[in-house]
Each structure stands twice: as structure tokens, then as C-alpha cells.
Amino acid sequence: MAQISVIVPVYQVEAYLPQCIDSILAQTFTDFELILVDDGSQDRSGAICDEYAGKDNRICVVHTQNRGAAAARNTGLQRASGNYIAFVDGDDRLAENMLGRMYAAILDPPCDLVVCNFLHVFSEEKNNFSPPLQNIAISGREVLAHQKNQKNYGLWTVVWNKLYKRTVLETLRFPEGKYFEDEFFSDQLYLRCASIRVIPDVLYFYRVRESSTMNTQKTRNYLDLIDAFRARIELYLEQALPVDEVYKILIFLLEPYAKCASAHLQGEDRRRLLQSREFIRKTAKILQKMDVSPMKKCSLPVIGLFPCATFRVAVKFRGLLEKYL
């Protein structure tokens, strides 16, 4: 049994997949299995997976119908046998010491999750950048307490710059059929992590493509992002996490809500939007009764009654509002 299971959901990435797989096979840490889940690709991605599997017995290939990245990752988790889990997107690549550096960090001192820094890789190299990170140890609840502010320790909702202790993921799966699945996944993940190590090393290279899923979202798909923020607000209230953080999540929810409200959705999509409208109103009322600043307390009735208008004002006066709210 390998120590680390590396899971790669593969879909329509034939141009980038060889570089991705090569970067994994070139790791200085070699005690891993590589699970390539071909999510019904129509290009040569599936064939490329099979070609690599014929050359290295550490590679397992699973071909499935197209069901999305969440289902592909879940399929990989079902096949994984390692004590630790890593996710890699099929168009990204790793530094050759990533697995070794992360494995050493998760063992000493023992922790549930290790997070590394990453580089945004654009088609024009001059635009590449990596966010600033500090070498720290924290708990999952601390992360949740600062998820939507500047002190979030660099622990974004993305899943691919992390090494997970297998036991943390035993009962945790990605919501299938949802867009923005990382948003749903991350909250439950951090609740399960008593100890997290953050290291500033840039070990993951995230390719930013105009044709990627995040950059081609249809307006109605933002209903799923609204649902993710709604679930997060409910979780924060249930777990008695900071009310100021709940307020910020509510503010973040206004953007996808405004996108959907302006799209004249119909049928089931319209019903979901109206439910979200009522959720915003009720949440604003709940927060009004809690210990928030006078400025926030005054803003909540407006948010509850006029969410779209509030978002437009927030965008126009963002700098000023961030200073006082």
C-alpha cells in the first residue's frame, strides 16, 4: 500500500495532461499511487492516461461517463488506498519536491492537513503571481473564523494545494452535480481538522485558462454558489462561529444573487432564487438580533429588503465600506 494516493480528475485536457502526469511521476518522494479518473473525455485524454499506465505500475486509470469533477474525485477516493490523499487538476503541475515536502510536514508534528503555497500560471508569464503565506500551525475552526477576511491564513476553498490525512476524509465527499463543489467541501473539511500546517513554499502550479470551468460559468450555475454560501451561514450559526464572519458571508452571497436575479430565470431556477431571496431576508433579521456593530446593524434591514441594490452600492463604494464594515 502506498503512503500517498494522488487523485487526478481528467476531462478534456489532452494538451496539458502529459506535463501534469510527468510532474507527478518525477516526484522525489516515490511511495505513491496515481489514480487518473477519466471523466468521459472526448479528446485523447483517456488514451493518454492508458499510455502512461502501461509504463508505470503506480498508475491506476478509471474511465467513467462524464459526471463532473466532484464525481471524479469521489471515484478516486473510493479507489484510494494511501494513508494520505492529494488532489491534482489535470491541467496543473507540481514542483518535484511537493509530495516529499508535504509528507514530511504532515508527519512532524503530526497533523490532519498540510497546505502549501501555489503559483497562478497565466498564458503571459508576466502575470504570474503567488499569494503571501506564513509558516504557521492552526486549527480548522480558526480557519472558519476568518474564511472571508484578510486573516484567512491562505487556506482557500481549493482542494489541490493540500495533503489530507485519510481519516479526515473517511465520511467526507464532494457534492455531485454541483458547481463550485469546493465551497461545499471546504467547510466540512475544516470542521474535521483539529490541526493544520501551512507552509509558504510554492509547490503547486495552478494553470489559469480562459476556457476553464471557473471562467465559463453560466449565470444559473451561480445558484449553486448561493446554496454553498447559504449552507456556510447555517453552519456558522449552528457552530457559534463569529457573527462578523457570518455578516461577511452574507455580503459575499449578494454578488451571485444579483447575477441570478438579473438573468430572468424561470421554472425551478426561479423557485431556487426566490428561496434564496427569503433566506437573505431571514438571515438579515437574525443578525440584527446579534452582537454586531451599529453600522452593520443599520445596514441589515437594507440588505434584507434590497439585496440587489445593496450589492450595486457595495461595489461602487467598496473601499469605503470595507473600512467601516
Rank of each mutant, 00 (worst) to 15 (best):
M1T: 04
Q3A: 14
I4A: 00
I7C: 06
V8N: 06
Q12P: 04
P18G: 02
I21V: 07
Q27L: 04
Q27Y: 09
F29R: 06
F29Y: 07
F29T: 09
F29C: 04
F32R: 09
G40A: 04
S41C: 07
Q42H: 15
G46V: 12
A53F: 06
K55F: 15
N57I: 13
R58T: 02
I59A: 07
H63I: 08
R73P: 00
A80L: 01
S81Q: 14
G82P: 09
G90C: 03
L94W: 01
A95Q: 08
N97G: 13
R101Y: 02
D108G: 09
P110Y: 00
C111M: 01
L113D: 03
L113G: 08
N117A: 00
N117V: 06
N117D: 03
V121P: 01
K126S: 13
K126I: 13
F129N: 11
P132L: 12
P132W: 04
L133W: 10
L133I: 07
N135S: 13
I136H: 13
I136C: 10
I138V: 06
S139V: 02
G140N: 02
E142Q: 03
E142I: 01
L144D: 06
L144T: 05
L144W: 09
A145L: 13
K148H: 15
Q150F: 10
G154S: 02
L155Q: 03
T157S: 09
T157G: 02
V159Y: 05
K162D: 07
L163E: 06
L163F: 02
K165H: 10
K165G: 05
V168I: 08
L169I: 03
E170Y: 15
F174E: 05
P175Q: 06
P175I: 01
F180H: 09
E183K: 14
S186L: 10
D187G: 14
D187S: 08
C193A: 09
I196H: 08
R197Y: 13
P200E: 00
D201A: 11
Y204G: 01
Y204L: 04
Y206H: 15
V208K: 12
E210Q: 15
K218Y: 05
T219Y: 08
Y222Q: 01
D224G: 14
L225D: 00
L225H: 11
I226H: 08
A228R: 02
R230I: 08
E234R: 05
L241R: 00
V243I: 07
L254A: 09
E255L: 13
A263P: 02
L265Q: 11
E268G: 10
R270S: 14
R270W: 15
R271P: 01
E278Y: 04
F279A: 05
R281V: 10
A284D: 08
I286S: 10
V302N: 14
I303R: 05
P307F: 07
A309H: 03
F311G: 02
V313W: 14
F317D: 14
Y324E: 13
